[in-house]
Structure formats: C-alpha cells, structure tokens
C-alpha cells in the first residue's frame, strides 16, 4: 500500500477533506467515501460516461481521474444540479419527454447536458448528438434524450429572455 494523501475537494458546494490512497478513482471517492451515488459505473474502459461529473467547468468521466488529481477541484454531480423539490430544467425535461428508462445513464447524461447547454445554448439535433457522444444509453435509443435536451434548452432560453 502506498502512502495516503490528504485530499480536499469541494463537491456540490460542500468542502470535503479526507485521506486516500493515490490510486483511489474519483468515482469511488464520490460513491463510496462521500455517499454521492448518483454518478454510476458502466464500464472500465472510459467509454460509457455514466460516471460523468463537472470538474472545474469541464465534463469529466470520474472513472478516469484519481481523487489525488482532483485535489483542490470544484465538482458538481447530479445531486448538485437539482433535487426532487427543485428540479433543474433538464431534469424536468428528461421526466416529461421520457428521456430515461432504467435511469442508470441519466445522472451522467444530465450532468453532461448541463455543460453542453452552457457552451451551446441553442444546439441543433446534430450538435446535441455529437455533444452527448461520450454518454452511452442502453434503454432509450437516444431519441427522447435529444428531445429532452431540446426542450430544456428552449425552457432555459425562454427563462433567460424573460429575466432580461
């Protein structure tokens, strides 16, 4: 066993400090150490994107980053995006447009989609498909995920316009 490291993270606005072995993957830190079990593990080859979180403004597959690498980072998971009493427009849209079935890819999908819409608030269908290509879904066939993201984009843009 290698020497444990002192690691500080800010996850969903809350400071976390702990000792971890360098080999601890961030997805395990979130799920097993911090009990943030929305991000999931769907593969071991960095393809599926079920573990996607936002780290310092980037969509990252947390299975492909060590907690030690993230030391000092700000992390947002699905739990920090919205909750049952205060859904994010993407969460509402996934519900209304049937953008999920088993729900296993959904936390990674929605977390990735928040960043996609931040970078491109008015994406075309093609841009959504390409922008979500790092997230695999076994249930939906993607069609309703696209619709959900389109609906959320429209909702968020309308809300932004109303606020201005």
């Amino acid at each position: 066993m290698s020497k444990k490291m002192h690691i500080k993270l800010n996850v969903n606005g809350k400071d976390e400090e702990f000792l971890a072995e360098p080999r601890e993957l961030l997805i395990y830190t979130l799920r097993e150490r911090l009990n943030i079990t929305g991000p999931h593990i769907g593969c071991e080859t960095s393809h599926c994107g079920a573990c996607t979180v936002t780290i310092d403004g980037k969509s990252v597959k947390s299975c492909t980053m060590f907690a030690a690498q993230a030391d000092g980072a700000e992390i947002t998971t699905i739990e920090g995006i919205g909750n049952p009493d205060d859904l994010h427009p993407l969460q509402t849209a996934f519900k209304e447009h049937h953008g999920l079935q088993c729900g296993y890819c959904t936390p990674g999908m929605i977390t990735r989609a928040t960043k996609l819409l931040e970078e491109n608030p008015t994406p075309t269908e093609e841009e959504i498909r390409f922008g979500m290509a790092g997230n695999i879904c076994r249930c939906t066939g993607y069609q309703n995920i696209i619709k959900s993201i389109q609906a959320a984009a429209a909702e968020m843009n309308a809300a932004k316009e109303a606020a201005e």
């Binding site: 996607t52 597959k61 990735r112 996609l116 290509a133 790092g134």
Partner: peptide, 9 residues
C-alpha cells in the same frame, strides 16, 4: 478524436 469528456482531458 474520442468524445467530449475525453477531449476536455
């Protein structure tokens, strides 16, 4: 190359 998440890193 790869996908959005991989391209960020």
């Amino acid at each position: 190359i790869a996908d959005p998440q991989v391209r960020y890193m």
